[in-house]
Simulated assay, not measured.
Amino acid sequence: MTLTKNNIADAIQEGLGIHRRHSIEIVEILLEIIKRNLESGEDVLVSGFGKFCVRDKKPRLGRNPATGDSMMLDGRKVVTFKCSSVLRDRVNQMAE
């Protein structure tokens, strides 16, 4: 099952015993803070979970799948995620 914003809001509501509207606001505010920092090029480090980083990709030669023609793709920024060793260990324990 995929974890959604609604699932997270439900878990916050149950965990803190607050109104659902407030738990949804908490999730939205948290995600907005993360987005703003990534937009400005800053990394987001969540201890025990992982690190979101903005990386620059250089322009590269690509191919139009419809025509097969070569074309130059512009450089762009991408967001990467590197999980912490704590998270990696927990995921690997579940696999055993």
Score class of each variant (00 low, 15 high):
L3P: 05
T4K: 04
K5R: 13
I8C: 04
A9C: 08
D10C: 04
A11F: 06
I12P: 00
Q13Y: 04
E14K: 14
E14Q: 14
I18K: 07
H19A: 15
H19E: 15
R20V: 11
R20L: 14
H22R: 12
H22N: 15
S23P: 05
I24F: 03
I26T: 10
V27W: 04
I29L: 14
L30E: 03
L31M: 12
E32N: 12
I34G: 02
I34P: 03
I34A: 03
I34M: 13
K35L: 07
R36H: 12
R36G: 10
N37H: 11
L38Q: 02
E39I: 09
E39A: 13
S40T: 11
G41A: 07
D43N: 13
L45A: 06
G48D: 04
F52M: 01
V54H: 01
V54P: 07
K57Y: 09
K57F: 05
K58A: 14
K58E: 14
K58G: 11
K58R: 14
P59K: 13
P59Q: 15
G62F: 03
G62V: 08
R63N: 09
N64Q: 05
A66V: 09
G68Q: 07
D69E: 15
S70T: 13
M71K: 12
M71F: 11
M72S: 06
L73I: 15
L73P: 03
G75K: 11
G75T: 07
V78E: 02
V79P: 03
F81I: 07
K82S: 15
C83P: 07
S84E: 00
S85I: 00
L87K: 03
R88S: 10
D89F: 02
D89Q: 13
N92R: 11
M94G: 11
E96K: 12
